[in-house]
Design a protein around this nucleic acid. Structure first.
Lengths: 104, 104
DNA sequence: CAAATCCATAAGTGTACGCTTATGTAACGT
DNA sequence: ACGTTACATAAGCGTACACTTATGGATTTG
C-alpha cells in the first residue's frame, strides 16, 4: 500500500506540473493535455505514474476519464519529512513539534 | 537558490538512505560507506547530488570530508507541500492551517 | 451503422542515471 | 621519502525513463 516511489513520481518536472494542474480541480485527460506541449499518451503515462504513487484518483464517466488529486496522497511524503523535523530551522521545527503535541 | 531537483535527489532509494543515515549525525565518507554495499565513488556521487540539492553540507578536515544534514535543506520541500495542504486529510490539514496562523 | 472522440497500451528510440573500475590529488603515518 | 589512507573525478556500461508514433477498445454522435 505504501508507495515507496512517491518521490520518483514527483521527481519529473512535467509530471509534477501535471499534479499541480490537477490541484486546480478535477480534469479530463484532454483538458489536461491542453496545457502541455506533449502528446496525449505522454499525459496518460504520467497520470498512470501519479496514480501508481497514490497521488491522484481516476473517475470514469463514459469515454471520459476524470482525474483529481487524492487528498491522502501526500500523506506518506508528509510523514517522511516529519521524521526529520528536528533538522528544520528552529522557527518551523518548533511549530511542527507543537503540531505533533496537539495531534490526538 | 531554489533547488528544483530536490525531488530528484530524494527519488533514488539508496541516496535517500544515505540522507537518512546522515540524520543520525555528521559522518565521514568512509563511515558512511560502511553501511552500504556499494563502492566509495558511488557514495561520493550520491553525496554530491545531495549537496547539489542543498540537502547536505560538507566540512573539510585534513583528508577527511564530514557530511551533515543541512537544516534548511528540506525547506523548499516543505514549502512545496504546504501549497497543497488544502488537499490533505482533514485532521492534518486543520492542524497545518492552525500552524500557519500561529506563525508570526 | 459509420465516423469521430476519448483514452490506454504497445513498441521503439534517445537520453539520463546509478553503478562499476581506473586514476588522480591531498593529507597522514612510519 | 615512501607507502597508505581518504576522497573525488573520469570513463564506460547497463538499465530505467520520458517521449514519440502506431494501434486498439470503448463510447458518443450523425
Amino acid at each position: 500500500m505504501l508507495s515507496p516511489d512517491i518521490f520518483k513520481a514527483l521527481a519529473d518536472p512535467t509530471r509534477r506540473a501535471v499534479f499541480e494542474r490537477l490541484a486546480d480541480g478535477e480534469m479530463s485527460v484532454t483538458e489536461l493535455k491542453a496545457g502541455f506541449a506533449i502528446s496525449q499518451p505522454a499525459i496518460s503515462q504520467h497520470l498512470a505514474a501519479l496514480r501508481g504513487a497514490g497521488l491522484v484518483t481516476e473517475r470514469r464517466e463514459g469515454r471520459f476519464a476524470y482525474y483529481r488529486v487524492d487528498p491522502a496522497g501526500l500523506g506518506p511524503l508528509v510523514d517522511w519529512i516529519d521524521r526529520y523535523r528536528s533538522f528544520w530551522p528552529e522557527r518551523i521545527g518548533r511549530l511542527k513539534t507543537l503540531l505533533k503535541e496537539m495531534d490526538p
